[in-house]
């Protein structure tokens, strides 16, 4: 057993344990923190595979943006998670049953894992050997050539997400004063100030 395998099992077991804690922790803030832990370990697994770009992206996007956002939301909204989880025990037996069944079946599926003999020749896309080229480079090449269409469409999805977010949340509140830069810039000295001659000793 070499070091690599040891590290793999370390990362993998921590990931699974953290995932269990995410759904079982009483405090939602703890849940999010466990989620971050799981992400980090998953990134470690990526690194083991030599996919350093994915590992970094995972840390930056999921930990740096998504999980932190989660943390904010959880802390800002006072959601009573205990109440939400009330039905949990009620559905545990049947849910557990379904879960166990699916687990057993998937184990069966994995047990019979064989790539179809006819599948040997068709690789989805030709990947250059690691070492010739960096991760980032390789991904970029394939994204902008072979997967041009999905890539562009992913852009459209993001556009929809943006539009949707604005549509659903942006509203013009009456009674809120907003900064109008153009109005500010258009202000002249004459508009902003008025000079008055005040006779001395008389007051305004």
């Amino acid at each position: 057993m070499n070091l690599e395998v040891l590290v793999f099992y370390l990362f993998a077991s921590i990931t699974v344990a953290a995932a269990v804690m995410v759904i079982s922790a009483r405090n939602p803030v703890h849940s999010v923190l466990f989620l971050i832990l799981a992400f980090f370990n998953a990134a470690g697994l990526f690194l083991l595979c030599g996919a350093e770009f994915l590992a970094m992206i995972l840390v930056i996007v999921y930990v740096g943006a998504v999980a932190v956002l989660f943390l904010f939301v959880v802390m800002m909204l006072d959601i009573n998670f205990a109440e939400l989880r009330q039905g949990f025990l009620q559905y545990l037996p049947i849910g557990g049953l379904i879960g166990v069944i699916l687990l057993v079946e998937l184990a069966l599926v994995l047990g019979s894992w064989t790539i179809l003999p006819s599948a040997g020749g068709v690789a989805a896309a030709q990947t250059p050997a690691i070492g010739d080229i960096t991760n980032t480079d390789a991904l970029g090449r394939i994204l902008y050539t072979h997967y041009l269409l999905p890539f562009q469409l992913a852009g459209m999805i993001l556009l929809v997400a943006m539009v949707g977010a604005i549509v659903l949340t942006l509203r013009a509140r009456p009674g809120v004063r907003r900064q109008s830069i153009s109005a500010q810039n258009a202000r002249t000295k004459e508009l902003a100030a008025e000079l008055k001659k005040v006779s001395s000793g008389q007051g305004v």
Binding site: L108, V109, L110, S112, W113, T114, I115, L116, P117, S118, A119, G120, V122, A123, A124
Partner: peptide, 27 residues
Amino acid sequence: YGFSGTTNFVDLAATLGHGDGTGPAIG
């Protein structure tokens, strides 16, 4: 994808169409 090595419909049709007679893998 895991069982056939491809996501393309044309390749999938070719791959899955040439079973070895034992029927498709359960996966």
